[in-house]
Design a protein around this nucleic acid. Structure first.
Lengths: 357, 357
DNA sequence: TTTTAGCACTCATTAAATTAGAGTGCTAAT
DNA sequence: ATTAGCACTCTAATTTAATGAGTGCTAAAA
């Protein structure tokens, strides 16, 4: 009613019927990947109005920016704005929480895998569920606590530095040194590092802190500054990685999407997916909200304008440590994908904490 | 001359001129990716004969199986057999050893990387050099010597098992145990494992040997058989992996090949490249010769009939530990690829041994 | 005032027809 | 043994025509 008196038109620009029609267009387009006409809608969805009325409504929706017309005499396809509206007001409401059937899966992966295996396994599972390409980032090192640091000597002049985080990640580096360390000195260093570093959040182990500790160690033990420096620089490397590692799964599912029958477009996207640094910054750019959706141009990458991303955060001990998500065409089965991403992100967190606990 | 007297025709079925023509067809086809006609050859290659003569020779070459005709009035394309001949008798001769300019590259990667980084980096470099997809397998664990084994305790009831091979690979596993081990016992176990396992070839550490050692340890120390068993099963897991890990590089280069403009064919190959187990057995199937080439159907995989593989072995301390190679269309720039693979495999071996020494 | 039937018009897609040209194989001359 | 000449073949590209889904507008109906 309020929509009828001119003044409030802007406020409620989409009435119930328009909404219904928009939804119908999108759902149909998700299935068919081609423009949708008024007759089709009238037939398949019981909208109780004639094609002519639907045509009028669609013209309105186009004017408002929710639909687009590839050419004059074609049907309509949803715009990014249309998908955004769809996702925000129609899909999200109807998502119900993860079904309990998942607990079965949880057991399969029980305790037999390393964190890396779990991550790539869950990525693959997600892409199998959704038939889109999946994307998973490793737990952020900054959000982890250092659980164990230990240096051991290999024969000759190599040291092996082991760093274990509470997220189950094990980092190792082999360092070559000039000088042989006595067992006693090594034990002392290990003890010292343990005391100073273990159980601290890696974000609190700043470069300044490390430098201070380095100096302190140097003053207490009689070995060359060189070795200590080497050890520390390796430790720092681990703590401040340029990029989070990203695991890709189901890349070939992209080929099943008709929008990538165009080889040129396909090439561009596949090239992108090969560049680890881009993937890394792409996924890191998502907020730590439970689930974020970027539709079409929203993702900001030129060659991915017709892709959407659905990305969830996974948690370890209530810390948002990593992301897992799906990349597919803008014309994506959002409701299914959202559900899957939701379930799998949850599961991923559980499995990793189980494995690293 | 001998070819001229009927009797020896079979022995030397291809005379110098045929060879020259075959070579010309192949070289031209490698460039153009389409059938080659007699006129083109006569024009571009100074064969000093007329197109008509070339036609006759090409008809012969087709009869002998070196060339194929897509359809009656098209030019000829090389068959697998043609490529095989080309590679064996024409290309290989003209390959000269790695130029010394490589030493520059060697320095770039000097000692700053882990073995995994070196492997994937060299794979990428190879695919950038050749513009084909590269394939590298990790050093075979069986060909390595165990350099260090050490078990350490994380807090609560987790143990971290570290295994380092002389190929620079560091394996780690976190194992959960029921019982807490005293430091003394742990030290004893470490000493014991060191003595029994270190510096042995992993191929000599058979399941039987391990079982024997396991029993011996159990008889000497007072802890539950359970823990020992867990530890051993993890160690065994590392020693007997199902698959070698394979690194892929430059997958998107496939798209630049016109033979994969057919989306269906492309899809099949990309699907294959996603299956780690297939890649692993594909590359493992190559002999330990310096360089092996499989052309077209020779590689035995249905969906890769129009692909060739050029695979070299890389060595650590004179042991053939892994493979590195290139996968591309049968119509591949063999001479360039062979050279590149040769250089890079050599470099890879050097870099890994430098990094792990 | 809103909805709907009717109709002329648009435009992409598909199929069919046509053309162009590269290449062959054969024959007869060199 | 080689080559010029020529008829023939077959693909790939281009043009043309046909199809049909879909629209926007108008005027009548609700």
């Amino acid at each position: 009613m309020s929509a009828k008196n001119g003044v409030k038109i802007m406020v409620e620009e989409i009435d119930a019927r328009k909404k219904k029609i928009l939804q119908a267009v999108i759902q149909e387009h998700i299935i068919s990947a081609s423009p949708i006409g008024s007759r089709t809608l009238a037939k398949k969805y019981n909208l109780d109005v004639s094609p002519a009325t639907i045509r009028n409504e669609m013209a309105d929706l186009e004017e408002l920016g929710y639909l687009e017309q590839p050419h004059t005499s074609a049907g309509r396809i949803p715009s990014d704005k249309g998908y955004r509206f769809y996702v925000d007001t129609i899909v999200k409401k109807n998502i119900n929480p993860a079904p309990s059937s998942i607990q079965k899966i949880e057991h399969i992966y029980d305790d037999m895998k390393s964190v890396q295996d779990i991550i790539s396994g869950m990525g693959k599972m997600l892409s199998n569920m959704t038939h889109y390409t999946s994307l998973v980032s490793e737990p952020k090192i900054q959000e982890s606590r250092l659980r164990k640091v230990q240096i051991m000597e290999l024969e000759d002049n190599s040291l092996l530095i082991i760093l274990v985080t509470d997220t189950g990640m094990v980092n190792n580096k082999i360092v070559k040194v000039q000088e042989k360390l006595s067992n006693k000195k090594l034990a002392y260093i290990n003890k010292f590092l343990s005391d100073k570093l273990e159980n601290k959040f890696l974000s609190s182990l700043t470069a300044e802190y490390l430098t201070r500790v380095e100096k302190e160690l140097l003053s207490r033990i009689d070995i060359s500054a060189e070795i200590i420096k080497q050890i520390y620089s390796e430790i720092e490397d681990v703590f401040e990685p340029e990029d989070v590692k990203v695991y890709l799964g189901g890349t070939s599912y992209i080929l099943e999407q008709p929008e990538f029958n165009d080889i040129e477009r396909l090439k561009k996207v596949l090239k992108l997916l090969e560049q680890e640094d881009i993937l890394s910054s792409l996924i890191s750019d998502f907020s730590d909200s439970d689930l974020e959706i970027r539709i079409g141009q929203e993702n900001g990458i030129e060659d991915m304008q017709n892709c959407s991303l659905v990305v969830a955060t996974y948690y370890l001990a209530n810390r948002a440590v990593g992301k897992i998500g799906v990349i597919g065409p803008t014309r994506m089965e959002y409701s299914k994908v959202i559900l899957s991403v939701d379930i799998i992100s949850d599961l991923l967190g559980k499995l990793i904490s189980k494995a690293s606990r």
